[in-house]
């Protein structure tokens, strides 16, 4: 699964609002923190973050860029970090992703959102 956490392909993030309506947006980075946690890059997903702060839950899809094997991670929100080693590492990786895609001006990391991974499901295409 490690190649799917390099940020080569954006990840879809599913959340739910206070009215029970699902929402899907894209994020640049799902960052490996440790065996039980990942961090999502918060650049511009205001609506999604509102939903997460309310419900505490999300599901993210990560994809291996070489063969498109993908996984759904069921997540539980833990904390937000705006500084420190993890934040700096994510910022560096995000800058690398931005320079590859020519989007340096819009890929500014606002926060690292830490989640516990509750469940992992591999997506079988056919």
């Amino acid at each position: 699964m490690t190649p799917s956490l390099q940020g080569a392909l954006p990840s879809a993030l599913a959340t739910v609002d206070e009215n029970g309506t699902p929402n899907i947006s894209y994020i640049s980075q799902v960052f490996y923190v440790d065996d039980r946690h990942v961090a999502l890059s918060n650049q511009f997903f205001n609506k999604s973050m509102r939903n997460i702060k309310t419900s505490g839950i999300a599901t993210v899809n990560v994809i291996r860029p070489d063969n498109l094997t993908s996984w759904y991670l069921s997540l539980q929100y833990k904390e937000t970090r705006t500084e420190g080693e993890l934040f700096d590492n994510m910022q560096m990786q995000l800058e690398a992703i931005a320079s590859m895609t020519g989007m340096e001006d819009v890929f500014k990391l606002k926060a690292a959102e830490i989640f516990e991974v509750i469940k992992v499901d591999e997506v079988l295409i056919s």
């Binding site: 599913a14 839950i57 599901t59």
Partner: peptide
Amino acid sequence: SGRPIMTR
């Protein structure tokens, strides 16, 4: 359970 699920 009210968890958002995505399907391709």
